[in-house]
């Protein structure tokens, strides 16, 4: 599949669409957890758009990745910040791109080291296919099928979220 730069959707608008999907399912027990970096930016926007109290949780999965033996430690690990009691909470895990599913697996493992949530759902802006694990999003605004040599990343420039596509 070929994607031209011109056809890339506006990620800020996608955040609002994602908020619209999540809103009807919110309960007073729901808390967002963003996966660094992209998921953290989105979680921050969703917290505001959905009028949720308190900051979202932030999770860095570096210590739970399954490719540590091949790639070593990420050069910039950020501290996971889960300042609430995870036990019996309904969590929505937020990420920018869902690809192999390995990051989601790592994030789930880390979350369960904080406690036993009542439920965990997955919200992503983009599902690019290529899953290697039995993981699927509960909320998603952009579904596409990209070959492995194409990279899709979310970036934050001057406070604005935008997509970048790179061909290896």
């Amino acid at each position: 599949m070929t994607i031209s730069l011109l056809s890339l959707p506006d990620a800020e608008i996608q955040c609002r669409l994602l908020a619209d999907q999540i809103r009807p399912t919110l309960t007073t027990n729901t808390t967002l957890v963003g996966v660094y970096s992209g998921g953290a930016w989105i979680a921050e926007r969703l917290t505001r758009l959905l009028g949720l109290p308190g900051p979202a949780g932030l999770i860095d999965v570096s210590y739970y990745r399954d490719d540590f033996a091949q790639k070593g430690l990420h050069p910039q690990v950020r501290p996971t910040r889960i300042s609430f009691d995870v036990n019996n909470r309904c969590l929505i895990l937020i990420d920018d791109v869902l690809y192999t599913g390995r990051t989601t697996r790592a994030a789930l493992n880390e979350l369960f080291d904080y406690g036993r949530p009542a439920a965990v759902k997955l919200a992503v802006l983009a599902d690019r296919g290529g899953r290697q694990l039995p993981i699927a999003p509960d909320y998603c605004v952009w579904r596409l099928d990209l070959p492995p040599e194409t990279g899709l990343t979310l970036s934050l420039d001057n406070g604005h979220l935008s997509w970048k596509v790179e061909h290896a």
Binding site: D60, S62, Y63, Y64, F68, L73, V77, R78, P79, T80, I82, V86, N109, E110, F112, D113, Y114, G115
Partner: peptide
């Protein structure tokens, strides 16, 4: 090291690295 300081506050005080 700064990212490891908070690990003792968690229910499971270890990571699988």
């Amino acid at each position: 090291a700064a990212t490891f300081v908070g690990i003792t506050d968690r229910e499971v005080k270890k990571v699988p690295l």
